[in-house]
Simulated scan of single mutants.
Amino acid sequence: MAETKKYVRIKKASVDGVWYADKIGNVYEVDRENCVSILTKRGIRGLSSVLREDAELIVTEKRPAKVGERVLITVAAPIGKQAYETGDVFVAESLYDPFAKDIRVLGIPDFIDYNEYEVIVDNELKNGEADGMESTYVRKQSEGLDRVAKSLGYVELAKSSLKQNGFIGEVHTFDLLTECAERLREQAQTHKEKIERGYPEFSPVHKSAQARRDEIVEQAKADVERLRENNIRLRTFNISLEVNRKDRSVEAIAKRPKSNRAFYGIAKAAPSDCFNVHIGKAIALRRALGLGVPDEYLNAPQPAEVRVGDVVYGKYSEAYYQLWCEDEIGDVSYEVKIKEIVDGKYRYVGGGYDFIDDADLTIIDDSREGVVGE
Rank of each mutant, 00 (worst) to 15 (best):
G166I: 01
P98H: 12
L47Y: 14
S259H: 03
I266F: 11
G128F: 07
D310H: 03
Y137W: 13
F355S: 06
K41T: 14
S49A: 13
S160F: 13
V277C: 12
V36W: 05
G153A: 02
L241C: 05
V50E: 03
C274K: 11
N299S: 06
Y321P: 01
G344F: 10
R347I: 12
E124V: 10
R45G: 10
Q164W: 10
L157P: 00
E118R: 15
L289P: 02
C180S: 15
N260Q: 14
G132P: 01
K101L: 09
C274N: 12
E186N: 08
V155L: 04
K81V: 10
D146W: 07
N127I: 15
V372G: 00
V243R: 13
N238V: 15
L47K: 14
E340N: 10
N276P: 08
D331M: 03
R185W: 02
P109S: 11
E374A: 11
G351E: 11
Y348Q: 07
E326N: 15
D16W: 15
A83V: 14
V89N: 02
H278Q: 11
E374Q: 06
L291E: 07
A220M: 01
S240Y: 01
A76F: 02
P204D: 02
L39Y: 12
F111W: 09
S317E: 06
R52P: 00
A359P: 03
K192P: 00
N26W: 11
I108K: 01
E326F: 11
Y154C: 04
I341F: 14
I216Q: 01
Q322Y: 08
G309C: 02
E218F: 03
E186K: 15
E118G: 02
F202Y: 07
S48F: 13
G144R: 15
A211G: 00
L289R: 04
A284I: 09
E201N: 05
G352Y: 05
G344H: 11
R235S: 06
E215P: 00
K255I: 12
A188V: 09
A100L: 04
S240H: 04
N244F: 05
V15D: 03
V67D: 00
E93Q: 09
R42C: 14
K207A: 08
F99W: 11
A77H: 14
S151F: 05
T4E: 09
V148K: 10
E218L: 06
G314A: 10
G132S: 07
N230I: 07
N238F: 15
A288H: 13
I120E: 02
L72I: 03
G166Q: 02
